[in-house]
Every structure is written in structure tokens, then in C-alpha cells.
Measured scan of single mutants.
Amino acid sequence: MDETGKELVLALYDYQEKSPREVTMKKGDILTLLNSTNKDSWKVEVKITVNGKTYERQGFVPAAYVKKL
């Protein structure tokens, strides 16, 4: 869990989004878990840094590609 009590997951593999509802992640990324009720895909939040500014983006990733921490 992070400092706000949200559950975290670790990306086990790289994943490139295939639709606007998904998010891209790299192996080793730590993501905030938002919903894990679907056995196939979990909703997560990723933090992306562009030019020194951090943005948050929500979307789905394959459940088999992440592990709860």
C-alpha cells in the first residue's frame, strides 16, 4: 500500500496499450490498483513524467501482467 492506503501492483512485463481504455507500463513499474474485480484486466493508475511534470492516467492492464504488493 502507498502512503494514502491504496493498494499497489508491480508490473511483471512490459505492456503497450491497445486501446484508449488501457495504459502502457514497463516491467518494474509500480502502479496504484483501483479495481481488481475482473479476473482478466485490472484498472490501475499510472504516473507519467513529461518534461519534469507528473501526470496521472487511469486505464486497464492484463491482470496476469501485474502482481499485488
Rank of each mutant, 00 (worst) to 15 (best):
K39D: 10
E45N: 08
V9C: 14
V66R: 00
E17T: 08
K39I: 10
V44H: 00
K39T: 11
R21W: 15
F60Y: 15
N38H: 09
L10T: 05
V23M: 07
L10Q: 11
A63Q: 03
E22V: 03
V50Q: 10
K43Y: 15
N51S: 08
I30L: 08
T37H: 11
G59L: 06
F60H: 06
P62C: 06
Y13S: 07
L69G: 01
D14W: 05
D14Y: 03
Y65I: 07
G52M: 05
E56G: 13
K27G: 04
T54I: 12
V46K: 12
T49I: 13
Y65F: 13
L31S: 02
G59K: 00
D29Y: 05
Q16E: 14
K27M: 06
Q16A: 11
T37P: 03
T49Q: 10
T49V: 13
I48L: 09
Y65Q: 05
S41T: 11
W42C: 06
M25Q: 02
T4A: 12
N35G: 06
K18M: 10
F60E: 04
Y65K: 07
R21N: 15
V61Y: 02
E3L: 12
K27N: 03
V46P: 00
W42R: 00
L31K: 00
E17K: 12
I48D: 04
Q16V: 14
K18Q: 14
E45S: 15
M25A: 00
G59Q: 02
G59C: 08
S36L: 04
T49E: 10
S41Y: 15
L33T: 01
T24Y: 03
L12C: 12
L12H: 00
K6R: 14
K27V: 06
L33V: 05
D2F: 13
E7F: 11
M1I: 13
K68T: 07
S19M: 06
N38T: 06
F60T: 05
E56Q: 14
A64V: 09
P62K: 05
D14R: 00
W42F: 05
K43N: 05
S36M: 09
I48Q: 07
L8Y: 15
V66H: 03
L31F: 05
E17W: 06
L31M: 14
T4Y: 13
V9G: 10
Q58C: 09
K39Y: 08
V44R: 00
D40A: 08
G5L: 12
V9A: 08
L69R: 01
V46W: 06
K47R: 12
T32W: 11
T32C: 11
M25T: 01
V66T: 02
D2E: 13
D14A: 05
R21P: 04
K68P: 09
E17G: 15
T49K: 09
L12D: 01
V46G: 04
E3M: 14
D29Q: 13
M1E: 13
V50N: 06
G28K: 02
V61P: 01
L10S: 04
M25Y: 02
T54K: 08
L34M: 06
Y15C: 07
T49F: 10
V23K: 00
L12P: 01
N35R: 05
P62R: 04
L33R: 01
A63R: 08
L33W: 02
K47I: 12
W42G: 00
G5C: 15
L10G: 00
L34Y: 02
K68E: 05
Y13D: 07
N51H: 09
Q16G: 07
G28A: 03
L8R: 10
L34W: 03
V46Q: 12
T24P: 07
L12M: 08
L31I: 07
V46E: 00
K39P: 15
P62I: 07
I48F: 11
E3I: 12
K68Y: 09
V66M: 05
D14V: 04
T54Q: 11
E56W: 15
I48K: 07
Y55G: 04
E56L: 15
A63L: 02
K53Y: 12
L69S: 02
S41G: 05
K68F: 08
E22T: 04
W42E: 00
G28W: 05
V66F: 07
Y65A: 12
W42D: 00
E7C: 15
L33A: 01
Y15V: 00
Y13W: 10
Y15N: 01
T32K: 13
L34T: 03
V50I: 13
I48W: 12
K67V: 15
T24F: 04
F60C: 15
K47C: 12
E17H: 08
Y15D: 00
S41E: 15
V61D: 02
L69F: 09
D14L: 05
E56M: 15
T49A: 07
E7W: 11
K26V: 08
E56N: 14
G59V: 05
T37G: 09
A63W: 03
Y13P: 01
D40M: 10
Y65D: 03
D40H: 14
T37R: 08
T54S: 10
K27P: 01
L34H: 02
